[in-house]
Simulated scan of single mutants.
Amino acid sequence: MCGIVGLHLRTPDLYPRLGELLTGMLCEMGDRGSDSAGVAVYGDPDWSPPGRGCVSVADLGTGVAEDATQVAAAVGTELGGDVDGVAVGASYVLSAEVDSEALLSAVRAAYPQAIIAGFGSDIAVLKGVGHPRALTDGWGLAGARGWQGVGHTRMATESAVTPAGCHPYAVGPEQCMVHNGSFANHATIRRTLRADGVLFDSENDTEVGARFIAKLLAEGRDVESALKELCAVFDGFYTLLVSNRDSFAVVRDAIACKPAVIAETGDWVAMASEYRALAALPGVDQARIWEPEPEVVYAWQR
């Protein structure tokens, strides 16, 4: 049992409240999974400055904590240019005036064992082990700004409780996926993806789904057709939320046994595993609220 939340803001007047609203939603799902949590925040100008490539690092893989300035300097040496870095809790968010994939290559060169939490323009991904309330406090999430956020609280069932096993899985540029449920045939699909050259950071079944989607998107598919393909290939019980910097999509398996609720107003679209995570959103009393149908892809564009 895990908890999923997502919030897509349509009005700029609410952008300053993204972190506040996302924090309340995520912590409301804390009893659905209290061993780890994570968020993807789109559009915070301090964490992911506009026009810069960004990389989020959940763990350096060195066994020691380093000052964010030192981390940025080490990556800058590999990049051959200036890199800015901020520490957000135990995570690091790095940015530079280069393509995000060039920055990602420099991070991997400087820290070969690092767990990359996410990369791309306008995205910061934070995840860690611990209760969602403690993690969000440590990140200062309530002060974050932006137009979209995705979150997950985890109750581990099939892989280790480590930063590599936390959601979101943000394995493509600006992409993010969170998942409640389990994929029964993930080992078979992982072997197929590895044979195609796809690399993995964990044994988590969610990572298999995220990399499957990322591969299809890289091949030119849109998110709706990619999610329909996932429904055709993956066995199991699941609710998924997939986002990039401009879109937000939800799908459930054919039986739809994992809970989900969507709410929509003119100012925002939100989803969560349970309604109580939506109850404090502004104007929710006027929202259209429904449970997503099995294998129907619900998607919104910015």
Rank of each mutant, 00 (worst) to 15 (best):
G3D: 05
I4F: 11
L7V: 05
Y15V: 11
P16T: 13
L21F: 12
L21G: 13
G24M: 07
L26C: 12
C27S: 08
E28D: 01
M29H: 08
G30Q: 14
G33P: 07
G33S: 09
S36C: 07
V39I: 08
V39Y: 10
A40V: 14
V41D: 00
G43D: 04
D44T: 04
P45R: 14
S48I: 01
S48Q: 08
C54Q: 05
C54M: 08
V55E: 02
S56Q: 07
V57E: 01
G61C: 12
A65C: 13
E66I: 03
Q70T: 01
A73Q: 13
A74E: 12
G76S: 10
T77Y: 13
E78M: 13
L79I: 12
G81R: 05
D82Q: 13
D84N: 09
G89T: 01
A90W: 12
Y92A: 11
D99Y: 08
D99C: 12
D99T: 11
A102P: 13
L103G: 12
L103F: 10
S105E: 10
A110F: 06
A110K: 08
A114S: 15
I116T: 10
I116C: 03
G118H: 03
G118I: 06
F119H: 12
F119C: 09
S121F: 07
D122N: 07
G130Y: 01
L135I: 15
T136M: 09
A144W: 11
G146E: 05
W147F: 05
G151A: 15
G151N: 09
T153N: 15
T153D: 14
T157P: 00
E158C: 09
E158T: 04
V161K: 15
V161G: 15
T162W: 01
H167I: 00
A170F: 06
V171A: 02
G172C: 02
N180R: 01
H186V: 05
T188M: 06
I189H: 00
L193E: 15
D196Y: 14
V198T: 14
F200H: 06
F200K: 01
E203Q: 14
N204W: 02
D205G: 03
A210T: 02
R211Y: 09
A218T: 04
E219D: 11
R221S: 11
R221K: 09
D222K: 04
V223G: 02
A226V: 03
K228R: 15
K228E: 08
L230G: 03
F234C: 03
F234G: 01
G236M: 05
G236I: 00
F237H: 01
T239G: 10
L240V: 04
L241Y: 00
R245V: 03
S247L: 10
F248K: 05
V251S: 02
V251F: 02
R252F: 07
D253N: 00
A254Q: 06
A254G: 10
C257N: 09
K258F: 01
K258W: 02
V261N: 06
E264A: 04
G266I: 07
G266F: 05
S273M: 03
S273N: 04
E274W: 02
E274L: 05
Y275N: 04
L278S: 06
A280I: 00
L281E: 06
D285F: 09
Q286G: 08
Q286A: 13
R288Q: 08
W290G: 08
P292D: 03
E293D: 09
V296G: 01
V296D: 02
W300P: 03
R302L: 13
